[in-house]
């Protein structure tokens, strides 16, 4: 009886890659000529990334792989949802405040109009009363009320 470990070694033996894998890698790098021969290559120094470019690329790839982690993705999605909800709440509050402001202004205008009308009506009533029942002697107080 062979142990499982030996069977695993046999099952997981190295496999041969496609024969043109290296050529495809070189083609992607941009070192290979259109004829596809590795011997006819362009100047390596020209197309080789500078150290700063390499650092930039590796930083970017590290950042990308960090962002691809499930935990980070969930955190980002949750944060985006929170920002969206907060934005909606703030927008609704602003709209509500604007509506309240407009209603207050309308109410003020309405109160001013009503006050003017009431004053006019009161003055008219006083005038009619004075015509119908003329007072023998007007006191200071009644005169003040009339002026008002």
């Amino acid at each position: 009886m062979k142990p499982l470990e030996d069977d695993l070694r046999e099952a997981l033996r190295r496999k041969e890659p496609p024969p043109d894998l290296a050529e495809r890698v070189l083609a992607r790098i941009g070192h290979i000529s259109p004829t596809g021969q590795t011997g006819q290559v362009s100047s390596p120094a020209a197309s080789r990334p500078t150290p700063s470019e390499a650092v930039k690329t590796s930083t970017w790839s590290r950042l990308r792989s960090w962002l691809w982690r499930p935990g980070v993705r969930w955190a980002l999605a949750t944060a985006a949802c929170c920002v969206l909800i907060a934005a909606v709440v703030v927008a609704r509050q602003r709209a509500q405040r604007a509506r309240a402001e407009a209603a207050r202004e309308q109410l003020e205008v309405a109160l001013q109009l009503a006050s003017g009308k009431l004053n006019r009506a009161f003055r008219e009533v006083r005038r009619v009363e004075r015509i119908e029942n003329p007072a023998p002697a007007e006191t200071k107080a009644t005169r003040r009320t009339e002026r008002l």
Binding site: R14, L21, A22, L26, I29, H31, T38, V41, P44, R48
Partner: peptide, 15 residues
């Protein structure tokens, strides 16, 4: 910066 040598490296480790 020798691309032929890089090709050799790829072939050596591609499996």
């Amino acid at each position: 910066g020798d691309p032929v040598a890089f090709g050799d490296l790829v072939r050596a480790h591609q499996a």
